[in-house]
């Protein structure tokens, strides 16, 4: 009898504990958002919000706190990175899961997982040593000669650019996305593949219509996870994006100054300037909201895809 009571008691406690933890995580989000908002409030009271969000005038000593260029820089770099990383990851995962012989897969997978664990600084250094010269000496001259229109025109000849940051970010987040995608693709049942092939599908038709379709919700989830990371990534981006103040990027080859880089670069050296710290915390709040919004949209797509087919 005593043993049963203990068991029931443990059941109750673990149940409650889990609810509590779940709520805490949820509240943590609110606390962070709320805390940032409270600290950013002074600057929001002194300046109109549309000036804060859309102006590119960032002159803290003159009391100008336009975050526009930084927000645009964040979106631009993330967008470029997505554009590169998604096809790269999907195709690599597809190769690993569907086409490569299993001994090769056995070797490649841990290798790719290893890449996911390398420190961002290392990616940053690699970006400076390899991607910056590549962009400066080859990509930029090539595109400005053959494609002299948006989004390839730029006056920035340094090689430190949104594209550079995008490439580095893409290479950085791809291993994570690849290893997740490969896992879910591989989990599609043999029976389902067999059905398609038995009806006379070619391997590619089978992969396209059965595997990719079956994993599309998981694919969205994996990509979100990768990009939540990309959007918040600081170090690697800071090292290769150029980070010139107050410029809206108009080209792949323009410099970009994303929010995380701004925060990391300036936090700690702005004490005497009025409203400076509030503006930086506003930058953090904006980044927070962007990340949450990005996740919510992706989550919506995920739900839609899951509902479409069980």
């Amino acid at each position: 009898m005593a043993e049963l009571t203990l068991r029931l008691w443990k059941d109750q406690v673990s149940h409650r504990l889990m609810i509590l933890m779940g709520l805490m995580v949820l509240f943590l989000g609110f606390f962070i958002g709320g805390g940032l908002l409270a600290r950013a409030l002074p600057v929001l009271q002194h300046h109109h919000w549309d000036q804060l969000l859309f102006s590119s005038q960032w002159h803290p000593t003159q009391g100008q706190f336009g975050l526009g260029a930084f927000i645009a820089g964040t979106l631009w770099v993330t967008f470029v990175a997505i554009l590169i990383a998604v096809p790269l990851s999907v195709l690599t995962a597809m190769f690993l899961s569907e086409y490569c012989p299993s001994p090769v897969r056995l070797w490649l997978k841990p290798g790719i997982e290893l890449l996911a664990g390398i420190s961002p600084v290392v990616y940053g250094v690699w970006g400076m040593l390899v991607i910056v010269p590549l962009v400066r000496d080859y990509l930029m001259p090539f595109f400005s000669e053959h494609f002299p229109f948006f989004p390839f025109v730029s006056e920035n000849y340094t090689g430190f650019s949104a594209l550079t940051a995008g490439i580095v970010l893409a290479v950085m987040v791809s291993p994570l996305i690849i290893s997740l995608l490969e896992e879910i693709m591989h989990s599609v049942s043999f029976g389902m593949r067999e059905v398609a092939l038995a009806l006379g599908a070619t391997k590619w038709q089978m992969v396209k219509t059965v595997v990719l379709r079956k994993v599309s919700p998981g694919m969205v989830a994996a990509i979100i996870l990768g990009f939540s990371r990309a959007m918040g990534e600081t170090m690697a981006v800071l090292m290769v994006a150029g980070c010139a103040m107050g410029i809206f990027p108009h080209s792949l080859f323009d410099t970009a100054y994303p929010l995380p880089a701004l925060i990391a670069n300036t936090y700690g050296e702005m004490m005497s300037v009025p409203l400076y710290d509030a503006a930086i915390l506003l930058a953090a709040l904006v980044l927070f909201i962007l990340t949450v919004a990005f996740n919510m949209i992706a989550w919506g797509i995920l739900l839609y895809l899951e509902n479409r087919e069980a």
Binding site: M192, L199, G200, T202, V210, K214, E309
Partner: peptide, 18 residues
């Protein structure tokens, strides 16, 4: 592909496509 379409297969466990 042509060989296989000449034969319909019913497996042990019904497998519908997603």
């Amino acid at each position: 592909t042509h060989l296989r379409r000449r034969m319909g297969l019913l497996s042990q466990k019904p497998t519908v496509l997603p």
